[in-house]
């Protein structure tokens, strides 16, 4: 049988607002994502030049994970993220570079981001996490699957904690939601609670 696990904390980046456990950490009226996320980067004094080489999905994931993990000492943390658009936003950029059949000039720096799990790699590099990475695609936020998967990883000692969530970027619209599942924590780890936290930034 499964042990009962708990949610330690959760974070959102949605509509110009970055929050941790529902408490705002950064807010902006900027509607352009690239300007918004850069001002968040500066606001948190992030100091990570590689950030500027990332695509939008990875920038979103990097800032979201920074806020979530700022006081985290555990390194054995698995990642199980999901979204709807995979890497389609960057896929469209890559497609544009190769539209001219006779003279395609694909950009390696764009192409490498045409996979949704690259943002898991960016989080892993940033936070030195040598652990499980899985990226799922659903047509909407799917608490059921993430709940079962996190339980499985923890029950089988794949990691001490699991970061689960939704990391969506598509045509300028973004929605990031991450939460940490562990043995202890203030929130229940249940499908109802995950759905409630998802809806309360």
């Amino acid at each position: 049988m499964n042990k009962e696990y708990r949610i330690q904390r959760y974070g959102h980046i949605r509509q110009g607002r970055i929050s941790l456990n529902g408490i705002p950490r950064f807010e902006s009226n900027e509607t352009d994502f690239s300007i918004f996320i850069k001002s968040a980067y500066k606001n948190f004094d992030t100091q990570y030049p590689k950030f500027f080489k990332m695509d939008s999905l990875s920038k979103l994931a990097l800032i979201a994970s920074d806020v979530l993990l700022e006081n985290e000492n555990e390194k054995n943390i698995a990642l199980a993220l999901s979204n709807r658009a995979a890497s389609l936003d960057t896929d469209r950029r890559h497609q544009k570079t190769i539209q001219d059949i006779e003279n395609p000039f694909a950009s390696p720096a764009v192409f490498v981001y045409t996979l949704p799990n690259i943002c898991l790699g960016e989080i892993s590099i940033r936070h030195r996490l040598f652990s499980e990475n899985s990226f799922f695609i659903f047509d909407r936020f799917n608490a059921d699957s993430l709940f079962e998967y996190a339980n499985s990883l923890l029950a089988n000692q794949k990691s001490e904690k699991v970061i689960c969530g939704w990391m969506e970027f598509d045509q300028g619209k973004y929605d990031a939601f991450l939460y940490v599942v562990a043995k202890n924590g203030i929130f229940a780890h249940s499908i109802e609670e995950i759905n409630r936290l998802y809806l309360t930034p």
């Binding site: 690259i118 898991l120 892993s124 590099i125 030195r128 996490l129 652990s131 499980e132």
Partner: peptide
Amino acid sequence: ASCNDANHISGPSRTGE
């Protein structure tokens, strides 16, 4: 098991970590 290199997004790890 599935473990990340935490090294580079396209370059394989030099230590196979």
